[in-house]
Nucleic acid binder design. Structure first.
Lengths: 229, 229
DNA sequence: CGGGTAATTGAGACCGGTCAAACTCTGTGG
DNA sequence: CCACAGAGTTTGACCGGTCTCAATTACCCG
C-alpha cells in the first residue's frame, strides 16, 4: 500500500511541513527518554490496527491523518474520530482495541509499547495523570460528537465539522482536508450526498468557498458558528 | 425536591434493595479508608452538577439512577449516558464538567473530592490506573453509542437500549426502568413517539412484553440481538 | 487526451418528526 | 368507593429532511 502513487497523493496535502510540528504537540513523548518510541509509516487506506485486536501499542500521529471507526455487519460505518499530527490514540485499556484505525493519507506515527507506558505511569504520577488526561480528552470529544449525531441537522453537523477541522488543521499545520466526502459522511452520520449538498448550500450563501473539493475556505466563521446550533 | 411524593415514587422501583449492592461494585472506593467519601441524596429531577461548573467531586451511584446530558440553545437534548448503582462519573479532568447530571429518581450517591482522588492516584499507581480505566470504560461506551446514533435505525437503537438496560439493571439489582420515554428518546437521538412506536412493534412481534410502561420483559433476547444490527 | 475515481446534482421514496387526540396509570380528594 | 386531575404514554395523520438510486460533471494522473 505504500506505493509511489500514495506518496505523491499525500505529499500535496503536507506542503513544506517536513517532520517539524508546531511547538509542544509532541512534548508528552519527547520529554521522556526512558520511553522507547519507534516511527512507522502507513500508506493511504492502510490499517494501523483492527477492532478487537490486542492493544499492545499506543500511537501518536507525527504527520498525516488517521480515521478511527466501527463497522456494523452490513457495512455501515461510524467514524468516531479523526486523528491529526500531535494526537495520541489507541489507549484502549481493557479488552483490546474498540475501533479500527486506518491512515487517510500517507501517515507517519510514533508507537510506544503499552507495557512501557504503564511502567512509566507506575513510576511517575505525572505520566499517569497525563495518560488519563488524554483519554478524558477523547471522552469529551465523543460526548460533543454524540450531541451532533443525535440532535443536530445535516447542515449543523457539516458546519460543526468545518469549524472543528479549521481549528485542528491549522494547529497541525495542514492546509487541506485529509479525508473525502465519504469519510466526512461516515463521521457525521450522513451520506456523502447529503454532505455534498450541505456544502453546496454553504457555498451558495457565501459562507464557504472552494479551491477544490478538499480545500475549503471559511469566508464567514461567525455565520458558520451560528449555524452550529 | 426531596418530597414525600418523590420518595414514594422511587421506592417502588427499588424493591427490597436497601443499601446493599451486588458484591464488588463498590470495591474501588470501599477498599480505601484514606479516601473520605460522603453520601448525598437527590430527588427525582434534581441536578447533581451542571455543564461548565468546576469538577470538584467525583460521584458514584449507590442507588437510584442518573442521566448525563448536553443541551443545545433551543432546548434539544442529548443524553450521553445513564449511570446506575456502582457506576462512577464526573471525572472531568480539564475545564469543568462537560455535561449536566440529574437524578432520574430518588438517588443516593457517594462523593469524593477530586483533590483527594488525585492525591491518592499520585501516591498509588494502582489507583491512578483504576481511575484511568473508568474513564476508558466511559469512552468505550461513548464510541459504541456514536455508532448507534450515527448509523442505526430507530428499531435497532431501541433494541440496543433494551439489551443494554437488561444487562445493567439486573447487575444493579433493579427491576424496572428508572427513566421515561422522553429520556429514552433523548438518549437514542429519537422522539418519544418513535420510541413508543418501536416498543409497540417489538411487543406486536412477541419479542418483548409489558407489565407497565417501565417494566418491560424481554421474551426473546436472541431475536432482539438480531435486530441490534 | 483518456481513464478512473471522487464529487455534484436531480428525482423520488421512505423513515422518523411534528402536531394533535385519546388513553392509561397513579395518587388525590370528595 | 368513585370521580377527578395531571403527567406520561400510546396512537393516528400528515409533513419534511435525509436517503436511495441514477446520471452527470469535475478532477487528478496516467
Amino acid at each position: 500500500m505504500l506505493t509511489k502513487q500514495n506518496f505523491a497523493h499525500a505529499r500535496c496535502f503536507l506542503p513544506a511541513l517536513g517532520d517539524i510540528l508546531p511547538e509542544g504537540t509532541l512534548a508528552f513523548l519527547n520529554g521522556r527518554p526512558d520511553l522507547v518510541t519507534t516511527e512507522h509509516a502507513y500508506g493511504a487506506g492502510e490499517e494501523l490496527f483492527g477492532e478487537g485486536e490486542p492493544a499492545d501499542y499506543a500511537y501518536q500521529v507525527v504527520r498525516g491523518a488517521v480515521r478511527s471507526y466501527k463497522l456494523l455487519s452490513d457495512g455501515r460505518r461510524q467514524i468516531g474520530a479523526f486523528y491529526l499530527p500531535g494526537d495520541i490514540f489507541g489507549l484502549d485499556l481493557v479488552g483490546g482495541h474498540s475501533s479500527t484505525a486506518e491512515a487517510l493519507i500517507l501517515t507517519k506515527v510514533r508507537t510506544v509499547r503499552r507495557r512501557s507506558l504503564e511502567a512509566a505511569a507506575a513510576a511517575d504520577p505525572d505520566v499517569a495523570c497525563e495518560l488519563w488526561r488524554m483519554t478524558a480528552g477523547n471522552l469529551r470529544h465523543a460526548e460533543e460528537h454524540m450531541l451532533r449525531l443525535g440532535r443536530k441537522t445535516a447542515l449543523e453537523r457539516v458546519a460543526a465539522f468545518l469549524l472543528e477541522m479549521d481549528q485542528r488543521l491549522s494547529n497541525a499545520g495542514m492546509s487541506s482536508l485529509p479525508m473525502g466526502r465519504h469519510d466526512i459522511g461516515d463521521y457525521l452520520g450522513l451520506t456523502l450526498e447529503t454532505v455534498s449538498r450541505s456544502l453546496a448550500r454553504l457555498q451558495k450563501e457565501g459562507i464557504v468557498g472552494f479551491c477544490n473539493a478538499r480545500q475549503i475556505v471559511l469566508r464567514n466563521r461567525s455565520r458558520l458558528s451560528a449555524l452550529d446550533a
